[in-house]
Amino acid sequence: MTKKLMSPYWAGFGLGLTLLLAYVFYGKGLGSTAAMMRTVVSIEKLFATAHVQQNSYLASYGAFESNPLNNWVIFQIIGLIFGSFLSGIWAGRAKKETNKGPRISNKQRFIYSVIGGVLFGFGARLARGCTSGVALSGGATLSLGSWVTMLCIFGGAYIIAPFIRKLWV
């Protein structure tokens, strides 16, 4: 039996308090892509240690003796996985399924899901963070650049959406 979703406003209020708590605890916001980036760097380091030292971007995440995974963002992501898993189990929404528009196959959905992920991952590194690290956290702390990036994320999505209507509607 699936439980009802929380009201968007209450869920947003909870998210906002969570972000406030992050600032009260350690003076930084919420993030997702930084932890994913550190995962990529740690994998690259396993296979190409010298390469990680040479690329200045990679090196900034974990050159020489430092472990790219030894960082608070990793623990925040582990918490995120844990919290969403518990919520999904409790509400009956944690179940094996694929969500898509009615007019495409699962296989098509998977392909577009990868493409979207690649674009988001690349864009998030270029813009120094994603929806949580830049748009939400930078938005709440009134960063000029974060507000510009936030508007570009929403703008970009609304510009592309009419051309790919078949994927979702």
Binding site: S32, M36, I115, G123, R128, T131, L151, A157
Partner: peptide, 19 residues
């Protein structure tokens, strides 16, 4: 920030998720 944001927006609409 602008170019990255637009790319992220396209990725959001195509992939359906943000990270």
């Amino acid at each position: 920030g602008i170019v990255g944001g637009l790319i992220m927006g396209a990725g959001f609409a195509i992939g359906g998720y943000c990270p």
